[in-house]
């Protein structure tokens, strides 16, 4: 029996363990997230950066990977360790990635046992790890009708733990106001980056698209992971049902048979509008069904994106 309703989330355990499935991460780690367009910052490896010059503040070494500029190899370290290391500096970040996770109440819905929020957390955690793995700066922003928590982008192992802890502690909040949050956030971040939005986008489509446009206007690259529960798509109810609004006090008793077709039509229009809007604004749109394992979604998307 499928569980329907808001998901419950356990606490405790090591931060991030829940969302970092080693097996899944192993599949993803071989891939690289490549920004399709020019982003702000020092481009290292395959990333291109419109800025020249580096930050001089050393932060760490990292092992050389093919593609790194050989100029940045620390030959001293090579002499000592017989390994190639590349020096990293603060301003050397390849990519600023902002993971924007919708933590509104509607994300608590689930019919598969994993709520959209849980699914989104797993997805954000995996993406965050992946980005940090390739030495990109990753920040996390959770929101509902406003920004609930913002972790600025960093690129350090402890940062991953901070993000994981935050994801672990994220609970479904209140109503969604995607557009307002996006607009506010677009105003806050000055440097170009990669905006990864993980949300069910249950808000006014036009406003959402306008806010996405705001990101694009600021030259950010935007990827939208649109999380949808299978029941929200199929509307598989038969008998008289009381629908209790997750984000408000609205209630509706309805015979699902009488509205199913109209619902499907409405939902289809909404999807088309979102997809068309994203396409027009060159926003990567990824429709994610929560019954599909998120690693599959991610692998498929990154494969496509790599090509």
């Amino acid at each position: 029996m499928r569980r329907t309703g808001s998901g419950t989330r356990s606490r405790g355990g090591r931060a991030g363990r829940r969302y970092l499935d080693p097996k899944k991460l192993a599949r993803i780690s071989a891939l690289e997230l490549r920004a399709r367009s020019v982003v702000e910052g020092l481009y290292s490896g395959m990333h291109k950066s419109p800025y020249h010059g580096f930050s001089v503040e050393f932060t760490e070494y990292r092992e050389y990977v093919p593609g790194d500029d050989t100029r940045h190899i620390d030959w001293r370290a090579y002499g000592k360790t017989d390994r190639h290391y590349v020096k990293r500096f603060e301003a050397e970040t390849n990519l600023r990635c902002y993971l924007m996770l919708d933590a509104s109440k509607s994300m608590a819905f689930t019919s598969t046992g994993t709520s959209k929020l849980e699914y989104g957390c797993q997805l954000a955690a995996s993406l965050g790890y992946l980005m940090l793995r390739q030495q990109d700066l990753v920040g996390l922003l959770t929101f509902d009708s406003a920004v609930r928590r913002y972790i600025p982008p960093r690129c350090s192992p402890p940062h991953l733990r901070v993000m994981m802890r935050e994801l672990e502690e994220t609970e479904p909040g209140s109503e969604t106001d995607v557009a307002r949050v996006f607009n506010d956030f677009a105003e806050r971040i000055r440097r170009r980056g990669l905006i990864i939005i993980i949300s069910d986008l249950f808000d006014d489509v036009d406003n959402i698209l306008k806010s996405l446009q705001h990101f694009r206007h600021r030259k950010h690259e935007v990827i939208v992971f649109h999380l949808l529960d299978p029941q929200e798509l199929a509307f598989p109810f038969d008998r008289m049902t009381l629908f209790d609004d997750l984000e408000g006090s609205r209630r509706l008793v309805v015979d699902p048979k009488t509205v199913r077709d109209e619902y499907a039509s409405q939902f289809d229009n909404y999807m088309r509008k979102v997809m068309r809007g994203c396409r027009d604004q060159k926003v990567d749109y990824v429709r994610v069904h929560t019954e599909v394992p998120f690693d599959e979604v991610l692998v498929r998307y990154l494969s496509v994106r790599h090509r």
Partner: peptide, 14 residues
């Protein structure tokens, strides 16, 4: 009737 917590309420109401 059975009771369901529902997210896509706008679509349903519409």
């Amino acid at each position: 009737y059975k009771r369901v917590q529902w997210a896509a309420m706008d679509f349903l109401i519409a």
